[in-house]
Design a protein around this nucleic acid. Structure first.
Ligand SMILES: [Mn+2]
Ligand SMILES: [Mn+2]
Ligand SMILES: [Mn+2]
Ligand SMILES: [Mn+2]
Lengths: 217, 217
DNA sequence: TCAATTTTTTAGACTCATCTAAATATTATT
DNA sequence: AATAATATTTAGATGAGTCTAAAAAATTGA
């Protein structure tokens, strides 16, 4: 088994690999983990000894197959617990992350399997992020940003890019929720703000908002 | 907040205080924690600095009010999670303890409160042990051991003293479960074994069994 | 190209929780 | 009460994970 710290590093590398193709740098990882570059070097060496990452000095890290599988397992647990907290325990979607950060490290295959079954094998967590299945497969999602839509196009809100409590509460306040249909009524050339229709109501949103909402068409 | 280790020590002291009235000895605690006496002394000193225990050298430890409240909170979480695992996730009562040992350290008041509510404010965990409420109060239980019953007396099984997987599976195998009615048909003088009736079936059990089953009359 | 800047690694130190071995205090036994 | 046995504490070490400061490597750009 791996320590909480090891699991958190693997998760961070997994997330950063999308952006930094061809190796995650020590500094990028230090920033993500909110720690010092020297600590990262120490931990990378440890993960490398355990065959969880591929590492050559000064070259950054990549996950090995074993490392990737472990990272996905942790992400699976994180998102299942977030779903559980919202669906069963009356948590709001802006309150679940910190608790899930703890719960994701509980070690019990049976627990994860049975929780998944109990929840009805959900495909997405409360923020619209895909929940990998027991084999580590993500159900494909051809999502795009609301900001990418053109005037008069319509889509269904399926996720958020920014998951900060501030943003999530902004969405709550303006009745924007996953599953709702959004139509782009107008786009302002000057600042790229959008006039959208949701639930029959018109709403003007800045590009910062439209750039953080995932849509499926 | 307290570390996992600190919480486990507090829990152990709480449990040992029933037996060792007037201070839990270093060695008793070392045995319970499966560690060395010197490690116990170190930790006791740390807990004492944090005002969680009352400690004078060579005199053993007692929980302070703050320490007791913390221990009870951990026990509350442990038992709520055990109940959750059995009631909602199809765990058997002999499989829940190790997972609950992990889950009891999750820090979130809201999680504990909502879990309790979700489960319907259960009074006892799957082994019949009382679950303290949010204020730390145990609902009183005038339980006695089956071994204490006389010939022809009847009681309802409400808990187990030994919670080892071996014992729990013995009970499963012999259809002895919490809530069932047991009548003492006969007691053998020589070895104190009992002939009991449960579900209309007769069963002979040794004193080791009857001494580990709690009964309410 | 080569000096300046940035990134990464190394060296050494710290805390936490643990250990072994040795010292000291307490308790039991003669 | 003195000695033997036991319980407890102290001293010093270790490994995990982190830190600061300094050295070394890589990259940038004049
Ligand atoms: Mn999250
Ligand atoms: Mn999420
Ligand atoms: Mn238990
Ligand atoms: Mn229990």
């Amino acid at each position: 088994m791996f320590s909480f710290s090891e699991e958190n590093y693997l998760k961070a590398i997994f997330h950063l690999e999308r952006r930094y193709k061809g190796g995650v740098s020590t500094n990028a990882l230090a920033e993500e983990m909110e720690t010092k570059a020297s600590s990262v070097t120490d931990m990378i060496r440890k993960l490398s000894d355990k065959q969880l990452v591929i590492y050559k000095k000064y070259q950054g890290v990549k996950l090995s197959e074993k490392g990737r599988a472990t990272a996905i397992e942790v992400i699976r647990k994180h998102r299942l617990w977030e779903f559980f907290l919202v669906e069963k325990l009356n948590f709001n979607w802006d309150e679940v992350h910190d608790v899930a950060e703890q719960l994701e490290h509980i070690k019990s295959e049976k627990l994860t399997r049975e929780l998944d079954k109990f929840l009805g094998f959900p495909k997405r967590d409360p923020h619209g992020d895909p929940i990998p299945d027991a084999e580590g497969n993500f159900s494909v999602s051809n999502k795009l940003l609301l900001a990418e839509l053109e005037k008069d196009q319509t889509g269904i809100c399926i996720g958020v890019k920014d998951t900060s409590a501030d943003f999530l509460r902004y969405l709550d306040k303006n009745k924007i929720a996953l599953g709702k249909t959004i139509t782009v009524k107008d786009i302002e050339n000057f600042d790229n703000s959008m006039l959208i229709v949701i639930d029959g109501e018109e709403l003007r949103i800045s590009q910062l908002i439209s750039g953080n909402l995932f849509i499926k068409m």
